[in-house]
């Protein structure tokens, strides 16, 4: 069956989920998967081209804090403050990305630069404690009536589920658009050999900046959506190294090179976190981080294509049991 038909069936199935009478807890899990699935997709949109960022928490933090602060202090609707936050993130991405790409800071060095960016944003949030609440975090001022379209606040989870679903689908559409665009060709070429790419006319710096800015803007939207849903944010949950590494881990586990890989990563990490929480509670400090680290190593060694990538490779092997390896010359 055509993948579009499967996609339509999947979306229709998801759309009726809130009507099935699931409890608040299960709906909460689904909303969390959709929000993080979108954030992870936003990271993978550039990560798949070898641009490994360890600092996407910076963009997540900007989304959450800029939108919340503008709402709390000026009463600016998230419909305006979120685009403002996205523009701030894109400017940050440009500021950091341009020198990196212009001077070919790639691989581990690029990862280190982004790692620093994530920490700069986290420390800035902590440092501006009078405005941001510092390490204690801040709450999003709720509207008295509980639900307001203008404030992007919804009293019932079902409505927020549909908002998260739309944003997540938007992320998948952008992933697909990039995948089918000539930008992908430029980025695939640049990720393999910048000299060879430039010799056939690819503007490597521009291509990388474009995808970084798209990824940053999307991640910022994810951060703002997370804040609107949780109604509480703090520097540890929306910025800094821990959340940045969680993003990387989830995408690698789910599958870096497939459209649904990051979402599968979101399901996997959520199930893992919930299992650990239910089994061990909060008694063993840092257990989740240790297990994430261990699993990350195992995934990189034994399943580098992630869960979805491995499944798809297995399926395509089944379809082509004995490929004729005739040279194409």
């Amino acid at each position: 069956m055509d993948t579009r038909i499967w996609g339509g069936i999947g979306i229709a199935a998801l759309a009726v989920v809130p009507l099935l009478g699931l409890g608040n807890y299960h709906l909460h899990l689904l909303i969390t998967v959709l929000i993080w699935g979108f954030v992870y997709t936003s990271w993978s949109i550039m990560g798949r081209f070898g641009m490994v960022s360890l600092g996407h928490g910076a963009f997540l933090g900007v989304g959450a804090y800029v939108a919340t602060m503008l709402w709390n202090t000026m009463g600016l609707t998230p419909w305006v403050s979120i685009p403002v936050a996205m523009l701030v993130s894109m400017a940050m991405a440009l500021l950091v990305g341009y020198p990196c790409f212009r001077f070919r800071i790639v691989g581990h060095y690029f990862a280190l630069v982004t790692l620093a960016l994530g920490e700069v944003v986290r420390l800035t949030i902590v440092g501006l404690r009078d405005q941001t609440g510092g390490s204690l975090g801040m709450t999003v001022t709720g509207v008295p009536e509980g639900t307001s379209f203008l404030a992007l606040q919804f009293g019932d989870r079902a409505t927020f589920f549909y908002v998260a679903l739309l944003v997540w689908l938007g992320g998948l559409v952008i992933w697909r658009l990039v995948d089918r665009s000539m930008l992908r060709y430029a980025l695939e070429a640049s990720s393999e050999d910048e000299d060879a790419a430039a010799s056939v006319g690819v503007n490597v710096t521009r291509a990388k900046l474009m995808i970084l800015m798209i990824s940053a803007a999307m991640t910022t939207l994810g951060g703002a959506l997370y804040a609107q849903y949780q109604m509480y944010i703090n520097p540890e949950t929306v910025s800094g190294i821990a959340i940045s590494l969680q993003i990387v881990f989830a995408v690698i586990a789910g599958g870096l090179f497939t459209q649904l890989g990051p979402t599968v990563g979101a399901v996997f990490t959520l199930l893992l976190a919930e299992t650990l929480r239910v089994t061990f509670g909060h008694d063993i400090h840092g257990l989740d981080g240790t297990i994430y680290g261990l699993l990350l190593v195992l995934f990189i060694i034994y399943m580098p294509k992630g869960i979805t990538g491995s499944i798809m490779a297995g399926l395509s092997k089944r379809r082509r049991p004995n490929p004729a390896a005739a040279p194409a010359e």
């Binding site: 000539m182 060709y185 393999e192 790419a197 056939v200 006319g201």
Partner: peptide, 16 residues
């Protein structure tokens, strides 16, 4: 560009 097919290698050059 090994991640691209033979045709896509050349399409990239023609396009850019």
């Amino acid at each position: 560009f090994k991640q691209l097919t033979i045709l896509d290698n050349v399409v990239t050059a023609a396009f850019y």
